[in-house]
Amino acid sequence: MTNTTSVPAVDIHGVSRIFAARKGPGVTALDDVSLTVAPGEFVSLIGPSGCGKSTLLRLVADLDVPTSGSIEVFGKPARQARIDQDYGIVFQQAGLLPWRTVAGNIELPLELHGVGKAARRRRAAELITLVGLSDFASHYPDQLSGGMQQRVAIARSLAESPSLLLMDEPFGALDEMTRERMQNELVRICAETQAAVVFVTHSIPEAVFLSNRVVVMSPRPGRIRSIVSVGLGDVSGRGEGLRENEGFFHSLSEVRDLLHGDDAAGASENQAGARGVETR
């Protein structure tokens, strides 16, 4: 875990990512993107399919490298931050190991990094309580609902006390009621851990409810169209009633207006040469 608060959690400067194509000049997924995320800040990335949201998250996570530009996480190159375990990652699918219990899945990253059994068990117990699954520590993934599995995935991502969470549509496969409950849970968890979050979503209400700022991206090539500051107070104090707040609806409208027409524009793009390239 990185405790430094004097440097940004994430500092993206002039990043572009071009994927080579079988024929032609290649596919520009991201073009000259710059963004700074402060320690403890919750920032959502939203935009039409193919705008490069997930590509940008993968670059921050050092699962891919930019064609140009630079990325630092707590003042370190993205690769060093990955090595130092400065962030946790949660994807749309929980990705739990079916032969491990809830506790066993949460302990996995600690086990891989040589943490002793007693310390692993203590940490897993803390996190199981944090995500509200104290009665399910010995259950297996196929005994859990989709929302519960995602809670386990979030707990696993927090196992090594990261100062940053990278989340790629973690609630996208859930029904609406479960999704809203998970959003409430995530607000609570972030308040307790004080981790910064970069969160990819297609849902405008989700982005507004969770975020300090919403980054609205343009259709490919992905650029930052605008950044909306959500003036709804500290994220840690947000609850169910916020969804009826006038300011909530104002921010919804602002983000929606910025996105208006993007889906149609993105769908009409020429996809030739883009086969097999993931540019979400």
Rank of each mutant, 00 (worst) to 15 (best):
E169V: 05
I18E: 11
L133C: 05
T67E: 09
T55M: 11
A265V: 14
I189V: 12
A173N: 00
Q183T: 04
G276A: 02
V255W: 06
G147W: 04
Q194E: 11
P8Q: 05
L165H: 03
D11I: 07
L108A: 10
A61N: 05
R122S: 13
D234L: 10
A94Q: 06
A264V: 12
A264Q: 13
A29E: 08
G116N: 13
G273M: 08
S16C: 06
R156P: 06
M177C: 01
S134D: 15
E126W: 01
V198S: 01
G104A: 10
V214F: 00
T28V: 12
V214K: 03
A78G: 04
V102P: 02
A125G: 11
L232R: 04
V43R: 03
A155T: 09
E244D: 15
R280N: 14
R79A: 14
P48A: 14
R122T: 15
R280E: 15
I89M: 15
P205N: 02
A119E: 14
G146H: 04
A29I: 12
I89V: 15
L242I: 11
L133N: 05
G146Q: 07
S157E: 10
F91R: 01
V131T: 06
V152T: 01
P162W: 05
N212D: 15
Y87W: 08
F248L: 08
N3G: 14
